[in-house]
Design a protein around this nucleic acid. Structure first.
Lengths: 239, 239
DNA sequence: CGGCCGGTTGATCGTCGTCAAGTAAGGTGG
DNA sequence: CCACCTTACTTGACGACGATCAACCGGCCG
């Protein structure tokens, strides 16, 4: 059940078996959440953080006019909600975008980890820091990239992140998001998202059928996106 | 010299004198950086993190077409660069937007703090987490708010953050950013930024003269911005 | 079978970018 | 001290990108 978390943390550094056992004992029962339900409700003060054992989730915020903005996408292995451990009050909702399997880490246990396992603490800290790095990259994409480039960047990022947790097959991966949801990621209208996707298809960069995205020309996609994966810190080194 | 850092951390929880002494001994000499210079250069692997003792700085990224996107604004007291401690490679540049006074924290010393001072570690961790929360709020603003609302939100946020480090006077504060820089924050053209500012002025929400912003109608500004300061975690509680 | 959801396409309208020009302030050198 | 920069702000005109409205198609489910 925790393999994906280990996979996730081990992208950045070695995790000892002692650390793994600490984590295992901090995690309580896994639960199933069905598509469209909240893993986490905005405005609450939960006593635990959520680990996404399997599935896709989106962090979102609803505005007064009913529009929605997705500020993060979480995939298998992501410690979706680790920051609430210190933030206390959760400021955004997190919704299951596919059937999700989740586990919970009690904040008391996490606190104990910070007292007893400094290296593991740093790895967990790093996990929240990488989330921040992704946010910055998204900000750059939203603010200054063309919409085509923005979407291309998103596809590159998701491919790399999913590959790291073994959720790709060749150049294909499953992305269970409707175009409406993609629109809420990119800050666009659905209609326009559709047109941007058509554009990438027309240029032979990707196919996108039945929630399966296949990258046909990685180099060109990277070029359009100006994608540089450094910000994901997928390099194993002492932290 | 470190008062502003303490002010910064004490917004979230009590900092003991032992913890303050640990921090003090981790910080090395302060240095002056003049406007327009980089505090931190993109792509390098610095051995220390930067504390902004006084001044304004902007985290930015340059794209191939020469455009710039600012992904964060840092003010007096911010631990600008703390995440590099674990990220290792810095992915964005940070530029002084005013004359800046900075101090450096060696990563070895920070590591020692994580080994010996769990509560202080959590506070430092929290500081990076709040940065992330701000990024999310900016993403929402970029993606789904009107430009007027986005700018109003930025003004509200800066006011609250600057008040927390005692850099406001009544309803006024100094913001040493040109409209060009504001444009790079909002992801707009300079021309349009100017028009959006005119709009806020015309409606009697703010004045903005010689880098001094004065809020004339806080309630209305908050309403336009849909501003809710929860994400800044300016509440003192055990962490 | 009918309704709903997701994807697709066309037409029209508004926001915002670009180009251009003008003003005001501050800095430098003759 | 003035001529001449440069930089920042401002305004107008025009065009492009993207939102909105509307309609249609196909698949899935009750």
């Amino acid at each position: 059940m925790l393999e994906t978390l280990f996979l996730h943390l081990e992208r950045h550094d070695v995790v000892s078996s002692y650390e793994k056992s600490l984590l295992s004992s901090a995690m309580v029962q896994t639960r199933h959440i069905s598509t469209g339900q909240d893993l986490v409700t905005s405005g609450t003060r939960p006593p635990h953080s959520v680990l996404l054992v399997d599935g896709f989730a989106a962090r979102y915020k609803l505005l007064a006019d009913g529009s929605r903005q997705i500020s993060a996408l979480h995939v298998t292995g992501d410690f979706v909600d680790l920051h609430v451990f210190l933030l206390r009050t959760i400021d955004h909702g997190v919704m299951a975008m596919s059937p999700c399997q989740v586990a919970y880490a009690d904040h008391d246990d996490l606190k104990r980890i910070t007292e007893e396992a400094p290296h593991l603490t740093r790895l967990l800290w790093l996990s929240t820091i990488v989330d921040g790095a992704i946010h910055r990259e998204w900000l750059v994409a939203m603010g200054r990239r063309s919409k085509k480039s923005h979407l291309a960047h998103l596809i590159c990022e998701l491919f790399v992140r999913l590959r790291a947790v073994e959720r790709v097959e060749g150049w294909s991966f499953r992305l269970p998001l409707s175009q409406t949801s993609i629109a809420d990621v990119l800050g666009l209208s659905v209609v326009h998202v559709n047109r941007v996707i058509q554009g990438l298809r027309r240029e032979g960069l990707i196919t996108w059928v039945n929630q399966i995205i296949t990258i046909l020309d990685w180099d060109k996609l990277v070029e359009v996106a100006e994608f540089d994966p450094t910000y994901l810190s997928l390099r194993k080194e002492p932290r």
